[in-house]
């Protein structure tokens, strides 16, 4: 039997994913949080995981370097990748929001938005019929309105703690996101019975977990 390869976004999604895989009997004996290894395998179940940067998961899957991937919906949308989006894994829940200082006026002319997510940002403001200038940053986006780089930010928030600590408020909600299982379209066809089984198992674990409110 051939290996099924899964790319997972490094960071908070890894542990959740490994928990779900464990629940369907897939184990990676040499995996522990501190490990610097990037590839782990379950030689019995023929499953391999590779840990990659969140924004690269979609690329691995789209180009067929891995059959499947676990990725936040935020990165998936930004990537614009041509893949199947087969399971809402339920974990990694957070919200896309517009945030800024309390006094920010959203309707202002020549509005400047700093974000890691230019696609989501443009889509949101276009739908509102507002033209904005987007500044693409790679991190610490909260800083932008504080130093006068932008009027507000578009970012994902989980608890709102970072916003609060930096004196920012949520000005508008965009949408909720969570982690997704994605599949390469060709693998989905050429290994369909294996991938189908895998998806069904994952889906049933997710359904059970959903009941207790992950």
């Amino acid at each position: 039997m051939e290996y099924l390869n899964i790319a997972i976004a490094k960071g908070r999604l890894v542990d959740h994913t490994i928990d779900i895989l464990r629940a369907i009997g897939i184990n990676f004996p040499d995996y522990h949080e501190k490990s610097r290894k990037l590839i782990f395998e379950d030689p019995v179940k023929k499953i391999r995981i590779v840990l990659v940067k969140a924004s690269d998961v979609a690329t691995y899957v789209e180009r067929g370097a891995t059959d499947l991937g676990v990725i936040g919906k935020d990165s998936l949308i930004e990537s614009g990748a041509n893949v199947f989006e087969v399971v809402d894994l339920g974990f990694g829940r957070c919200r896309f929001v517009v945030a800024g200082l309390e006094a920010t006026v959203l309707q202002k002319h020549k509005f400047i938005v700093a974000t890691k997510y230019p696609k989501v940002t443009n889509q949101f403001f276009t739908e509102r019929g507002q033209t904005v200038e987007t500044i693409h940053l790679n991190g610490s986006v909260e800083l932008a309105p504080l130093v006068g780089l932008s009027d507000c930010i578009v970012d994902i928030v989980e608890t709102g703690r970072t916003l609060q600590d930096n004196g920012l408020k949520v000005l508008a909600e965009i949408f909720e996101i969570s982690a997704r299982l994605i599949a390469n379209k060709a693998s989905f066809k050429t290994k369909h019975s294996r991938i189908d089984d895998f998806i069904n198992h994952i889906q049933s674990v997710v359904n059970e977990k959903g009941a207790v409110g992950q």
């Binding site: 180009r63 067929g64 379209k185």
Partner: peptide, 11 residues
């Protein structure tokens, strides 16, 4: 119809 080759990511 689409044709896919095993192990290759695109049609």
């Amino acid at each position: 119809f689409h044709g896919y080759i095993a192990g290759y990511g695109q049609p």
